[in-house]
Amino acid sequence: MSTLEIRNLHASVEDTEILKGVNLTLHSGEIHALMGPNGSGKSTLAYVIAGHPHYEITEGDILVDGESILEMEADERTKAGIFLAFQYPVAVPGVSVANFLRTAVSNVRGYTEQADSNRGGVIGSNLMPMRDFRRELTAKMKEYNVDSSFARRYLNDGFSGGEKKRTEVLQMAMLEPKFAILDESDSGLDIDALRVVADGINKLATPDRGFLMITHYQRLLNYVKPNFVSIFYGGRIVKTGGPEVAEMLEERGYGWVEQEFGTGELVAA
């Protein structure tokens, strides 16, 4: 049982404050949906949790099981169990999915640390054995509906929007995080692909894992049932409730949120 806690988090980019006091606690086994208008700062929150160096934290803290992760680099946070499924995964030319994932999985599962102590830390000297890795990757590609040809393809290079999102879910399945932040994993998907991605999330939604699920649409929540739904507005969470909050947003939009909570605070509206 783990906890991811975000306390009064303020973050800015180039002197513009984007996160303005975010408070949120996520426990293992929970699915917490985060909904909010374009530009309200949801992706910023996701990046800041994952450790993107571009943002400056001016106040507050992020803790995993009571320990602050703010001083950790992105890779250390991933090893500590944080996973971010990107809203816009970047294409990395010449880096194959299988090649990079083998290094990623080896790091996260501690093969590389063994190498550090055994062999003076030669990078790449201790990777997960190729056969074991291949077997697991092949099985998971099948399970999460990613064509086996994608192992040899270059990361997100020429992938369609839906293929990118499915590959993000595959990576999550390989890295087995404690907390997954899914930034619009449902956007740009056709109806079948949405079901595939939702099935994937449901398979991974085990009691030892928590999800922060950023989405604009009720349709994902029809497949993946959230325990909590929060409304993100003007750089912070303004309301948290059950699934009924999402239904209300679907019906009424954000107009009432602005009337109730907006004081011209909408960031770069």
Binding site: T78, P93, A104
Partner: peptide, 21 residues
């Protein structure tokens, strides 16, 4: 950042990007 968010160290990430190039 993408590669580091998957658990690669900065050195590993840069190495992979250069190889990829």
């Amino acid at each position: 950042f993408y590669l580091m968010a998957r658990g690669l160290s900065r050195a590993q990430a840069e190495r992979m990007i250069v190889q990829g190039f």
